[in-house]
Design a protein around this nucleic acid. Structure first.
Lengths: 138, 138
DNA sequence: TTCTACATTATAATAGTTCTAAACTGTTGA
DNA sequence: TCAACAGTTTAGAACTATTATAATGTAGAA
């Protein structure tokens, strides 16, 4: 389990104890070639497919929040009844398909850098996120 | 009540019956010089300050959704436990102050038009929304 | 005025998320 | 190695925003 030891190091180095629940969630989130978007509910389903040892819902929430805080996940701002997370933490934006209720990455090369020519005194910009809502052409 | 007759026309012309609840909510949302952001909870508080006849929570939700559908309000995509609405329906973007949990309009003149150089086949762009998260400079 | 479709209402129901407090476990240091 | 402790997990309750329900009310048309 080379991958696991990698996750153990990753967790430990960021001050998170490498518990078996967190390692399992790392495997599910970060073992794939492609990054992806998910809701807590999606993740719970993936976990129950991937393992027989169930992980409690509270732990899934705790872990996702911990990973987000450490920068291993990003939350995508979108009006929805549930939160969407992204395993792609590099800078990029999203399409949101309102018919399919589907989020799609926009390659950062396809978006001209967004220039904001104003600032709020005493504040610094933390992130600039673009959400492009699309719908079916009729 | 010149203003009220204006709202009555507005509602009627968009196919919404001008009920006293809707007219009251129009007064609260659209009688001000400046546009503003609000949550349902904010609006409920404003209503109870402005009138003695209480409006039921369900009606507040129904009305806000109806107004949004008619284009009198915009919903702001942001990760929050509640939905934020904007009485400014013109094209513009937002700062979100993560310390103060406060939304601030960005004058559209201060944002270079966002160019998206890719499309999804069969879909057309409905909106492009930029959310600039800011935090205190330390 | 009367009728009908649309609105409002109180309340229940739902769903996502957070809280709680007890049990468990990784890590540290003797 | 092992005790002790702090961090973690857990089941389930609690919480909160929102939506559904079904009865009552009301605007507008005939």
């Amino acid at each position: 389990m080379l991958n696991n030891s990698h996750y153990i190091d990753k967790l430990r180095s960021s001050g998170l104890r490498p518990t078996k629940q967190r390692i399992k969630i790392c495997e599910i989130l970060f073992n794939t070639e492609k990054t992806f978007h998910f809701t807590i509910n999606d993740l719970v389903k993936k976990i129950s497919k991937a393992t027989n040892d169930k992980i409690s819902l509270a732990t899934v929430y705790n872990t996702v929040h911990a990973f987000k805080k450490k920068g291993y996940l990003k939350e995508i701002p979108i009006n929805s009844d549930q939160s969407y997370f992204d395993t792609n933490t590099s800078h990029h934006h999203h399409f949101y398909d309102e018919n399919q209720k589907d989020l799609i990455d926009i390659d950062d090369a396809d978006v001209e850098p967004v220039k904001i020519n104003t600032r709020i005194p005493g504040k610094k910009i933390k992130s600039v996120e673009v959400l492009v809502k699309v719908e079916d052409t009729e």
